[in-house]
Simulated scan of single mutants.
Amino acid sequence: MKFALRLPFVVSSALALSTLLGFGSLASAQDGSPQMNLRRTDLTAGMYRIDTQLAVTPQQREIGLMFRKEMPQQEGMLFVFEQPGVQCFWMRNTLLPLTAAFVADDGTIVNLADMKPQSDDSHCSAKPVRFVLEMNQGWFAKRGIKAGAKLGGAPFAPR
């Protein structure tokens, strides 16, 4: 179960403890302002370029795209986790309809999930992944990008 924001189902005990003690980004998430200044990288999906914000820390992943009222069509957010796991997302405090692409280490899209704004419905990866790319809902479908397609870019380069 996610903890009231944008956390995966499994919450580390350290993060849970820091949240209970009032540390972490819950206060910044509760002020209702979107995070707009995350580090960025370019990804590719076939011939399409994606200007991607990177959510790499627990705090950044927790807030994700909450409170955003708009997002350009070529923009998305890549959630990067330390190790593969079944990643589950919901849409509490998220105003935009989004599609989540659950992505394997090599950039292969494992599965896609359309998500409704302001919903607590869980959307999970079909198998353990380290990456989740959120885009405006319909972006993947309009370009014919489905499960099995490969994304390119630095996060998916061989280690």
Rank of each mutant, 00 (worst) to 15 (best):
Q83V: 11
L95M: 14
Q30L: 15
W90Q: 04
L21W: 11
P155A: 05
F89T: 00
L98C: 03
L17C: 05
S119T: 10
F89Q: 00
D106L: 09
I145Q: 11
S122K: 03
K142D: 15
S12N: 03
S25K: 04
L26W: 06
A126N: 13
C88F: 00
S13H: 13
L65Y: 02
K116P: 07
Q73H: 04
T44S: 15
M91S: 07
L95W: 08
V10L: 10
M71P: 04
D31I: 10
P72I: 06
Q60C: 06
G76S: 13
L98R: 04
V80L: 06
L151I: 08
F102T: 06
Q137K: 12
L20S: 07
G138W: 06
N93D: 14
P34G: 09
F67Y: 14
S33F: 11
Q87M: 11
V11K: 01
P34E: 12
C124V: 04
V129W: 09
Q137H: 09
M77H: 03
A14I: 10
I145V: 13
T99R: 08
E62K: 00
E62W: 00
L43H: 04
R61H: 02
V11L: 15
Q87F: 00
K150Y: 09
V86E: 01
V132I: 08
A101S: 06
F102V: 05
L78K: 10
A141T: 13
S119H: 04
K116M: 12
N111E: 08
L21E: 09
D31A: 07
I109Q: 03
A141N: 10
R92G: 04
R6T: 00
D42R: 13
S122H: 07
L151H: 07
L78C: 10
C124E: 06
F79Q: 01
Q73E: 15
A104S: 13
P72M: 09
I145D: 11
G76V: 06
E62C: 02
K150E: 08
F9Y: 01
T99F: 07
R40T: 14
V110Y: 08
G24E: 01
F79L: 05
Q118A: 13
T108H: 01
L26S: 02
S33K: 15
M71C: 06
L96N: 11
R6G: 00
T99M: 08
A4V: 00
D121R: 15
Q60L: 15
C124T: 09
D120N: 14
R49C: 05
G138K: 06
L5Q: 02
L5T: 02
F81E: 01
S25E: 11
M1H: 05
Q137C: 07
M1V: 10
M91G: 06
A101H: 01
V103E: 06
P158C: 05
P158I: 05
D105R: 14
Q74A: 12
K146Q: 14
T108Y: 02
F156W: 12
V80A: 07
V80H: 00
N136Y: 02
